[in-house]
Design a protein around this nucleic acid. Sequence first.
RNA 1: GGGCGGUUAGCUCAGUUGGUUAGAGCGCCUGCCUUACAAGCAGGAUGUCGGGGGUUCGAGUCCCUCACUGCCCACCA
Length: 938
Amino acid sequence: MSESAMQDQQRQQTSELAKAYDPSAIEEKWAAYWVKEGVFDTPEARDAKAFVMLLPPPNVTGRLHMGHMFEQTEMDILTRWHRMRGERALWVPGTDHAGIATQMMVEKALVAEGTGRKEVGRERFLERVWDWKKQYGGAITDQMRRLGASVDWSREYFTMDEDLSVAVNEAFVRLWEQGLIYRGAYIVNWDPTIQTAVSDLEVESEERVGKLYYIRYPLADLSGEYITIATTRPETMLADEAVAVNPEDERYKHLIGKMVILPLSAPQLGVEGNREIEIIADDWARPEFGTGAVKVTPAHDPNDFAIGKRHNLGQRSIFDERAHIALPHSPYDGLERFEARERIVRDLDAAGVLEAVKDHAMTVPVSQRSGSVIEPRLSDQWFVKIQPLADKAIAAVKDGHIRFTPEMYEKTYFEWMGNIHDWCISRQLWWGHRIPAWYCEAQHITIARKTPTVCATCGKTGLVQETDVLDTWFSSGLLPFTVFGWPGEQERGGSNGSTKDMADFYPTDLLVTGFDILFFWVARMIMLGTHFMLDVPHADGTARALKDAVPFREVYIHALVRDADRQKMSKTKGNVIDPISIIERFGTDAVRFTLASMASPGTDIAFSEERTDGYRAFANKIWNAARFLFMNIDRGREAGIAVDFCELASALKSAETLEGKWILTRLGAACAAVEKALEAYRFDEAASAVYQFFWGELCDWYLEVVKLRLEFGPNADKAETTAALTTLVTVFEAALRLLSPFMPFITEEIWHALWASSDAGVAPGKSVALTRFPMASDCLKDEASAVTMESLQEVIVAVRGLRKEISVPEKEAVPMRIFGEPAAEIASVHARVLAKMARVSAVEIAGGALSGSGARSTAGFDVQVVYERVIDVAAERERLTKDLAKFEKGLTAANRQLGNEAFMGKAPAHIVDGLRKQAAETQMLFEKATAALAELNG
RNA sequence: GGGCGGUUAGCUCAGUUGGUUAGAGCGCCUGCCUUACAAGCAGGAUGUCGGGGGUUCGAGUCCCUCACUGCCCACCA
C-alpha cells in the first residue's frame, strides 16, 4: 500500500467524509452491520418498560412495495424512538405463508413445466412449495434489511413454522371443544378458478351492466297460463326448486300453491316427463322488481338457499367445482357457466318462452385473488361461530382497552363487528395448516391435537384426515400470542399456559397497519386474542382481565401510498413504484424522510419524486454540514484546540455566545416538538420540526454565525474558539441523535465518524440507535438569548432586503443606521455578526426615526442602508403604496374590532391586548410609510 | 341503498379546544460559484380557505345545505 493510500485509509477511519454524499456507499454497509452485530436484538434488561410491535407479516411470495416501505418506515421511526428513550423495544418480524398466493405461484411454475398440482399430488406439491419458500421466501425480508428496519431478527418467524402450527391446531381444537367451530353444508363464495371457498372479505363487488331475462314458466295444469320470472342468471334455472311470489302480491295470489313446468327440463335432464316446481309465497319476493316472481335455486344463490330452508325445498346442484355444468344426460353437460347461459337463452328463445331481455345494472361478486366471478356454491365447509368472539372484541374497544388512531376507524370497526357473519375458515387448498379433523368410514368427525388412530364416535380405525386447510388469516390472527409461545406450558402438561415472553411482551403496545386489513387481520386478532388470552393467567397466577387479554393497546391506521397522480398502484395499471429502484436513485434515508413527511393522517400519500429529491438535498445538507464540522475539528487539532467529548452532555446545558445559547434553546424546542408529534403519530410534524431545525436554524444561522468564532490562527483567542467548537460539536451530535430515527444511515455514518475524531477515537457504543434520544430537558433553555437572537435576525433580514432593494452589489460592504431599542443596542453589540451575515461595514445608532432612501421600518426598529445609489423611485413608490394598503386594511380591521363593544366586552383580555399592541404597531408603520411616500413624492 | 373522508398558494400538503393581519416544501421571478454544500446562498411574488346560508364580539376552524371527489360496507332476483 502506498503512503498516500495509507493516509487516505487513516483519514477514512478518523474524521474525513467523502466529498460528495453518496447514499449507496454507506447504506448497504450499515444495513449489514446492524444485522451482523445484532444491534436490534431485544435486550434482556427486564427492568425497562417494554415497547412491543408485531410487523404485519408480508406474504412470503411478496416483493416490497411502497406501502410496505411506508408502513415499515413509520414502525421503524417509532421503534427507534422508543428504543432511544431507554425502553426495551421489540419489533417482531416474520412472514406469512399466504395460502392462496403461494399455492398459485407454485402451481403456475408447475404448469410451465408441463405438469400441474393434481398431477404431482399433494405430497410432492407441498415439497415443491417448501423448496420454493427456501429459495425465494427470503426476498422480502432481505429487502427489509436493506431498509434498515430495526426488527429483532433473532425472533423472525414463519406462519408455517412447527411451533406456530402446533399453536394453530391447539386453537382449532379448543374452539371446537368450546362449540365455536362447526362443519356443515352452506352456500359459500366459491372461486371456480382456484377452486376453493373464500370468505366474504375476499370477495369484491364490481359494477357491471348485465341482462335481466324474462322467462315464462307455464302452469302445469295445462291451462295455458304462465308466470313470468325475471332472472340475471338463466343458466341456474336447471336447478330451480320453486318460483316465489310475495304473499301480498295481488297479481299472483291465485297462483300460490300451483305447479309450473320448468322449461327445458324434461329432455335436457333426461327425465321422463316435465319437471314441475311449486309457486310459493315468500316475503323475499319484491313485487316491484322485475315481474314480482322470482325463481328459487337454493344450491346456487344464498338468498334462495334461505328460502329453500324456509320451505323445505330440495338443493339440486348443477355445477362442478370449475362452475361447469355437471348434468351427465343433458346437452349442456360440461359447458362453462357463461357458455351455458348463452345456449340456454337461445333454447328458451327457440321454445318461445323468452319474453324479454333488458339491460340491468348490477354488482357482481368477484374473487379478490383470481378475479373470477364468484359462484355461490353449496358445499361442506368449516365455520367459526363468530358472535361470542365478536362480543368480547366489541367490548375491548368500547371499554377503551384498545384505542384507534385516527379515531374514526373505531366506528368502522363497530359497524363491521356489529354485522358480522360466521367465518368460513376452510379452504380447498393444499398449502396451509391442514384442519385437524379425521373421518371414519361412517363420516364421524374426530378432532384431535395429534393424529388419532380410532374414531372418537364409533371406535373404528382407518381414519382419513380432512383435506381442507385453514384460511391463512386464521393463523395470522393468532400471532400476537403465538409468537410469544402460546399455548406454552399447558400444552406440555405445565401449570397455567403463560410463558416468560408472554409475561414480558403481551399485550403488545401498538399495531401499525393499513385499513385494508382492518377486518382481515386487526379485527380477527382482537377476537382471537381476547378469546384465548383471557384464559391465560398472568405469570403470578392471577386471572387476566379483558384489559390485558387484548392483543395490542393501540392501533395506528396509516394512509395508502398512491402514485403521483393519486392513482392506486397496481400491476395492471403499470404504475407501481418499486421502492428499491427509488432508493437506488435517492437513498433510503431520503425516501424514508419523504414518506414520514407526507404521512399526514386521513390523507393518502401521493408519492412524489420531486419531493424525494428535495429530501435527498436535505441529506446532502446534513452531509455537508458534517464536513464543515470535521474540517473545523481538523483545523482545531492542527492548532492544538480540541473538544472534550466527555463533556458533551454538560455542554448541552451552557454556551458562551448569543448564537450558542440560542441554538441550544432551539434544539430543545425541536426535541420537544418531535416528541410531541411522535406521541400523536404525527410523523409529518416530527419530520418538519427536524428539517426546520437542522436546515433553517442550525445550517442557515448557527453555522454561518459560528464561523466568526472559529479562528485557528496564531493570534486567535483559543478559549473562544474552543468554546465555539465545543458548542458546535455538541449541538451537532445531539442533532444526529434527533435525526437518527428518521434517517438512520447517514446519521450512523456521521456519528461514527464524529466519535472517531474524538480523543477516544471510537464511538461509545455500537450504534447511534442505541444512544439516548435528546430531550428538551437535556438542553439549555435561555429565552432571553433567544429573543435577542431573533431581534438580530430581524435586523439582518431587513438589511439584506434593503440591500437588494437599492441594488447594492452582493460583495460590497456598506454601513447601516439603526434606530429603536433594543434592536439598535443589539445591532451594535453584534456588529461582527451583522458584518458577516449582511455585509455591514459599520453600525451607526441613529438619533431618530429613519426614512427615505434605503430605509425600512419594522414594528421594533428603523434601519437604513447607507449607499449612494439612486433608488428606483417607481419601484419604491409601488412597494410603499402596497405596504400602505396592507397597513390600512389591517388597521381598519383592528380598529373596527376595538371599537366593537361586544368584542371588547366578551373577548378574553390577552386577545384584546394583543390586538391593541398590534394596532399600535400597525399605526406606527402606517405613519412611517406615509411619511416615506410623501418624501419620495417630494 | 347505508356509512366515512376530502375540497386552503401553480403543485403536494399543514393549520391544535373558534382568537390578533392563514403557513411549509416544491415550483416560479431576481441576484450571487461568499473556502460545508450550485443537490447551494440571499431576496421576492402568490390565496374571495369549493358555493350558499346560519351561530358568534369573532369562523379556514362549529351547524345546515348544495356541488365536486375519493373510499368502505350491503344477500336483492
